[in-house]
């Protein structure tokens, strides 16, 4: 089993102000995510035929509107921010050794940064009417 140790002797020394900022971030992004994820699930899983309606034409239709582009960008940023900060707490709790903790956090940070870049590019460089694609797969406005 996990040996016990004195919490006061932990190697991680976190400035109080940083943890206060983290606490505020979790509550702000958490409240925001209730609206963002709630809307995402309601539209994508509860309308039409739910998950059976989600395809290239459906997503292209959503991203034709700046409203859903911004919605999904906020979802991406708030979701990854809230999740990464939560996983930082989990890593602090369970990963033993300063170097291992730092390594896990660096790996997670790199993965999250790549996904922020990838997700933002996908939302804002999306081509709803790619040349040469079968017309029946495209949204109706491609003509």
């Amino acid at each position: 089993m996990i040996p016990r140790r004195d919490p006061a002797k932990r190697a991680v020394v976190v400035p109080q102000r940083a943890e206060l900022t983290s606490w505020v971030i979790m509550r702000v992004t958490g409240a925001l995510l209730i609206v963002l994820v709630g809307g995402h699930l309601a539209i994508n899983l509860m309308t039409g035929h739910g998950v059976h309606s989600v395809d290239f034409a459906f997503v292209s239709g959503k991203w034709a509107s700046p409203f859903w582009q911004v919605w999904d960008l906020l979802l991406l940023l708030a979701g990854l921010g809230h999740g990464a900060n939560g996983m930082r707490t989990v890593i602090n709790d369970y990963v033993r050794g300063d170097r291992a903790r730092l390594t896990w956090k660096l790996v997670m940070g790199v993965v999250v940064a790549i996904l922020v870049a990838l997700g933002s590019l996908v939302i804002f460089t999306h081509d709803p009417c790619p040349h040469g694609a079968p017309a029946d797969l495209l949204p109706s406005f491609c003509g």
Partner: peptide, 24 residues
Amino acid sequence: AAVFIFLLLHILDVATIRISPGAF
């Protein structure tokens, strides 16, 4: 933790929309 791991995968699967309509 479970939802976070799904989120990582979900961003990747949505990213296939940049490959082609058929792939997505």
